[in-house]
Nucleic acid binder design. Structure first.
Length: 424
RNA sequence: GGAGGGAUGGCUGAGUGGUCGAAAGCACUGGUCUUGAAAACCAGCGGUCCGAGAGGGCCCUAGGGUUCGAAUCCCUAUCCCUCCGCCA
């Protein structure tokens, strides 16, 4: 959520900045609501002040043994007036809250203009796509040939957009997870974290998935409430600091977690239906950093390197792009995507996304630190990124490391995790 | 599933209808003392909203209710603890 103070002070300017994201901020509606709110709030607080003063007077009179009946008569209708004022104020405040909670984070100056992924800006490439002396197959064909990647059985078990892996491929998938976690913890200083795969509504509000993006989530009824399957570990991990005031000495907090992720993919029917690019359930190793505000841009650069390190160790060619305004997520001020080379599709596809949410999530989360310079609790900055999406990394390994015989060579970095096997 | 007990500021914890946004301790900040530090002593010290300011409102887990007035009484929910049962 944006800082209401800033929005109030410069609604036009905020609206201008949000245009980059393709978001039309309803300035007039907001200003109108704000004016109503201000007047109602002053009125209500005046009434509250009167009630408090008079009630204290009654208390004193009673203590002094005086007759309080006349005083009670004077305040007879005060309660009703106050209730009415409060109700009206609540309505306006709810409306304002609804409006404001639907407003995305303001993009950083460095975010390029643009409408969609076509306008994302490539900032670097690493590695060279391999030249095949045979026609490379995609991961679906490779998996079918070995029988170790099976979408048909998955649709029998559940439905579309799920997969079953068996044998060595399943092990390679698990090896990737271990490899990623070990790299992030041992080389990049993250703390390994195990978190719930279901979360409550407060957590999803904290990181911004709710109220706007509920249709992307799998809901789990529980008693008369609802839990949600996590769409990313960002949700449970970032919510660790919800309602906390973190000691300055503990910063930065750097967490990594491997979790499954569940996405309903509502609205993407027909997109990426072949293979395991876009599944309802996939594994991801996530990085989360909670930092003091002045450090978040440095942290973003650090985190993209942490994600790249995995691909470099696996020797998978990739490129890094800066998302343009129109492609930027709701809560993000700036996002880098890493796209890995997929010979089977003959193009780069997203495998990681690293974002600086600045104080946008922290405000909802009430995630704060005590700034030693001011002695006051102040909002933190939150960042997250995939390090990496495991399913997509697996298929990248399959496609880039395939042999003419349809086997998969095991990348050197993964061989220790595969019992020394060099090919599967 | 059954029976009890809890939830108060950064932390521990007192407070059972009125001057309580809340004792005390710890932590923290400043000062005195000291070569310096520690100790001791003195002082300060919750958050948030409106307001130029003066000042005012709100916040004692959350949501309702009773009352002129609620941290305090009532109801509901959530979470935590103890015991019994069940259990990977």
């Amino acid at each position: 959520m944006l800082d209401a103070k800033i929005v109030r002070a410069n609604p036009e300017e905020v609206a201008q900045l949000l245009k980059k994201k393709g978001f039309e901020f309803p300035v007039d509606q907001f200003v109108e609501l704000e004016n109503q709110r201000k007047q109602l709030q002053v009125d209500t607080e005046t009434l509250q002040n009167e009630r408090n003063t008079r009630s204290k007077g009654i208390g004193k009179a009673k203590a002094a043994g005086e007759d309080i009946q006349p005083l009670l008569a004077e305040v007879a209708d005060l309660g009703n007036k106050l209730d009415a004022a409060k109700a009206e104020l609540n309505t306006i405040q709810d409306n304002l809250e609804d409006l404001l909670s639907g407003v995305p984070n303001i993009p950083s100056d460095e975010v390029p203009e643009g409408a969609d992924e076509e306008d994302n800006v490539e900032i670097r490439r690493w590695g060279t796509p391999r030249n095949f002396d045979f026609e490379p197959q995609d991961h679906v064909a490779l998996g079918e040939a070995s029988g170790e990647l099976d979408f048909e059985t998955a649709s029998k078990l559940t439905g579309s957009r799920f997969s079953v892996m068996t044998g060595k491929l399943a092990r390679l998938h698990r090896a990737l997870i271990q490899f990623m976690l070990d790299t992030q913890t041992e080389e990049h200083g993250y703390t390994e974290t195990y978190v719930p795969y279901m979360v409550n509504e407060d957590s999803l509000r904290g990181t911004g998935q709710l109220p706007k993006f509920g249709e992307d989530l799998f809901k789990v009824p529980f008693g008369d409430r609802q839990y949600y399957l996590i769409p990313t570990a960002e949700v449970p991990v970032t919510n660790i600091v919800r309602d906390e005031i973190v000691d300055a000495a503990q910063l930065p907090l750097k967490y990594t977690a491997h979790t499954p992720c569940f996405r309903s993919e509502a609205g993407s029917s027909g997109r990426d239906t072949r293979g395991m690019i876009r599944q309802h359930q996939f594994e991801k190793v996530e990085m989360v950093q909670i930092v003091e505000p002045s450090k978040s841009w440095d942290a973003l650069e650090e985190m993209i390197r942490h994600a790249e390190a995995i691909l470099q160790k696996l020797n998978l060619p990739y490129r890094v792009v800066t998302l343009c305004g129109g492609d930027l997520g709701f809560s993000s001020a700036k996002t880098y995507d890493i796209e890995v080379w997929l010979p089977g599709q003959d193009k780069y596809r997203e495998i990681s996304s690293v974002s600086n949410m600045t104080d946008f999530q922290a405000r909802r989360l009430k995630a704060r630190w005590r700034n030693p310079e001011t002695g006051k609790p102040e909002l933190l900055h939150t960042l997250n990124g995939s390090g990496l999406a495991v399913g997509r990394t697996l298929l990248a390994v399959m496609e880039n490391y395939q042999t003419a015989e349809g086997k998969i060579q095991v990348p050197e970095a993964l061989q220790p995790y595969m019992g020394g096997k060099t090919e599967i």
